[in-house]
């Protein structure tokens, strides 16, 4: 393994975790809620791909996006909205997202078994092209470009459309936005839809390199992205994206350069650096130095 390949791997893994971080950060911005069940959206998308293996790729991907967005909306409507109506505390809401996460994992286990399913969609992207003697798999390029496009599109949606303006106002001060006519459920619904689209994209891109789908597949992805979100700073989307990218990049880099004996220590190193970051820069690595701390988690 050489540096060129390690960097290509690291950039594409960074783009992937950047997407996950933005999906989580978007919902957090509006609801002040970390949706721990975000990873199960990614898993759901992967199962859809596994079961649509015989379909033409565009159709399978479309199905994946539709199913994941639908599940994201089901999460919001069935679990989070009723709790919000009842005036549940932020802590109760957070616990509810854990419950949803475990419930979905149990459903996947019952429905699809523990052995795992294989995704073949876009498998041809594992072939490589050569630049300067470095073999680079197409999926790395596709992941990086898709990630960049989706992040830019999300940014444009938030900054250039009226509903995006509503989302940003609600993310600033939910209550004041509501009395000014911003429809809470519409804004929250939109953030879940966009988060769902991003999760589906991650399903498609991730399973090309990691085709084995298991019920717990989404958990480490969520945790790693959350690490990124916290390291980057929760209060702004771009800092969350950057944090996600950083964690993915570091993970990809070391994962390639270290031997497999050494990589078992990798999670410990990552979590160790997170504790360090939180001690030194509690508002996040990319937050302005004197930024006030994040209000509610």
């Amino acid at each position: 393994m050489n540096w060129g390949q390690a960097i290509a791997d690291a950039i594409s893994l960074g783009a992937l975790y950047g997407l996950v971080a933005v999906g989580i950060g978007l919902v957090f911005g509006v609801m002040r809620l970390i949706n721990f069940a975000y990873g199960e959206l990614i898993t759901a998308g992967a199962y859809v791909l596994a079961y649509t293996g015989g379909w033409p790729a565009p159709l399978a991907i479309l199905m994946c996006v539709a199913a994941v967005v639908a599940l994201a909306l089901v999460q919001e409507r069935v679990a989070f909205r009723p709790l919000r109506r009842m005036g549940a505390s932020p802590a109760a809401m957070l616990v509810a997202t854990f419950a949803v996460s475990f419930l979905l994992q149990a459903i996947y286990l019952l429905a699809f078994g523990s052995r795992g399913q294989i995704v073949g969609t876009l498998g041809q992207l594992n072939s490589a092209f050569t630049v300067d003697g470095v073999d680079i798999r197409w999926i790395l390029l596709v992941t990086t470009v898709t990630g960049a496009i989706l992040l830019l599109a999300t940014g444009a949606l938030l900054n250039r459309t009226t509903i995006g303006l509503h989302v940003r106002a609600a993310a600033q001060d939910f209550r004041t936005a509501r009395i000014l006519g911003v429809r809470a459920n519409r804004v929250i619904g939109l953030s879940f839809v966009v988060a769902g689209v991003l999760a589906a994209a991650v399903s498609v891109l991730y399973t090309v390199s990691n085709p084995l789908v298991q019920p717990q597949m989404g958990v480490p992805i969520t945790i790693f992205a959350l690490v990124g979100v916290v390291v980057g700073g929760l209060d702004r989307l771009w800092s969350a994206a950057l944090g996600g990218f950083a964690v993915g990049f570091v993970y990809g880099m070391f994962g390639d350069l270290l031997s497999s004996q050494q990589t078992v220590y990798l999670p410990a190193v990552v979590y160790g650096s997170v504790i360090l970051v939180l001690l030194l820069r509690p508002a996040g690595l990319f937050a302005p130095l004197h930024a006030r701390q994040v209000e509610r988690v």
Partner: peptide
């Protein structure tokens, strides 16, 4: 608010991350 009641606040409550114009626009759009 939907019934036509609006208020201002003694303390802040501007959307700090939005521009001045956007603060007003979002209310009109609402």
């Amino acid at each position: 608010g939907r019934a036509g009641l609006a208020r201002t606040f003694q303390h802040g409550h501007a959307f700090k991350g939005l521009t001045v114009r956007e603060n007003v626009e979002v209310a009109a759009l609402g």
